[in-house]
């Protein structure tokens, strides 16, 4: 697994779109200054969380759509398997714990005559101690739920492997 690590980026998706590197490269950042979700909504991205984008191989747009939806299941499964928590998937792809958002997923494609590039961005609230007042009621983190820190890199690996596996299955 090839990972490019950054201390701080504007957004891992923005960087991945700009660099257009080889498929399955992972852009990982300790924090994002302008992390965003659908319709440019902000994603709170302080140090401690897991923020990464995966450059996807060129695929059919229908497969990318399926993969995006499956990504939420993979994240939920990773949380459940590792920490015995009961995550809830809010379709198409937010993951909730205790009715609060713990993960957001955003796939961005550049499409001309065909899909030119695709990147899937995942923001997972892992080791975040606390959220600003306006987010307290709607966001949570694994650290808040478990009362201890988790291993970001291990979670990252499990999610990426899960996605690779899924893409292989749906593209066939």
């Amino acid at each position: 697994m090839k990972i490019k690590k950054y201390k701080v980026v504007s957004s891992t998706n923005l960087l991945a779109k700009k660099l257009r590197p080889e498929p399955w490269l992972i852009i990982l950042a300790e924090k994002q200054t302008v992390g965003y979700g659908k319709k440019s909504s902000r994603w709170f991205s302080p140090k401690g969380g897991l923020y990464f984008s995966i450059v996807l191989p060129k695929s059919k747009i229908e497969d990318l759509q399926t993969l995006t939806i499956l990504a939420a299941f993979i994240v939920a499964k990773t949380i459940k398997d590792n920490f015995s928590l009961e995550p809830l998937i809010k379709l198409p792809n937010d993951v909730l714990l205790d009715q609060k958002k713990i993960c957001g997923i955003l796939t961005e494609n550049i499409i001309g005559k065909e899909v030119k590039s695709s990147v899937i961005g995942i923001g997972l609230n892992t080791n975040i101690d606390k959220f600003p007042k306006e987010l307290e009621d709607e966001a949570t983190s694994l650290k808040i739920e478990l009362g201890k820190e988790v291993d970001n890199e291990k979670i990252l690996k499990q999610i990426v492997e899960g996605l690779k596996e899924q893409l292989k299955t749906i593209s066939e």
Partner: peptide
Amino acid sequence: KDQKVLILSAMKMENEIVSE
């Protein structure tokens, strides 16, 4: 060619449509 012309949102995917 390849200039971004619009964004199409679909099921949580943001698609930048560039001109062919």
